[in-house]
């Protein structure tokens, strides 16, 4: 195994790409540990999501909020342990891009829901609309 073939400058770079660095010298044991921690946490959160909809312990109308919270938590686990996005100074570019992505996603989803709910409130109820057509 040759370990000196990387002439890419990556080993000395200050910035990190998202995901696992495939350069020679990544510690195997430490890598497996990170993926295992992420996997166990993800399984646990997935199990919690499935449990939340099947149990009566949680107040019914709060179930969607619980599902959203568990989903966001699991996405965070995936980002940290599988995609290796961290808050370190070598990850600034990745985190900034992610923050912009999250901003757009929130604008699209909450903006759409807000506008469509508002439209619904301002609409003539369907019954009155049918009466007007008669």
């Amino acid at each position: 195994m040759s370990g000196n073939g990387i002439a890419d400058g990556a080993s000395r770079a200050r910035d990190k790409a998202p995901g696992l660095s495939l350069d020679v010298g990544e510690s195997f044991g430490k890598g497996v540990q990170s993926y295992l921690i992420g996997f166990v946490l993800a399984v646990w959160l997935t199990g919690a999501s499935f449990w939340v909809v099947q149990t009566n312990v949680i107040y019914g109308p709060a179930v969607p909020a619980a599902l959203v919270a568990l989903a966001v938590a699991q996405m965070g686990i995936h980002l940290v342990f599988f995609l290796h996005i961290t808050t370190g100074p070598d990850n600034t570019n990745n985190v900034l891009a992610l923050a912009f992505g999250v901003l757009i996603v929130c604008l699209v989803i909450f903006g759409s829901l807000w506008i469509m709910t508002n439209l619904n409130h301002n609409m003539i109820p369907m019954k009155d609309m049918l009466n007007m057509q008669r």
Partner: peptide
Amino acid sequence: GPTSKSIVVSFGFWIFLLSDIVMFS
């Protein structure tokens, strides 16, 4: 000097993935 190619490629793909997630949203 310039950033290494492996970092530029992965970062570019990260931007693509984020825009893909925006599409899913």
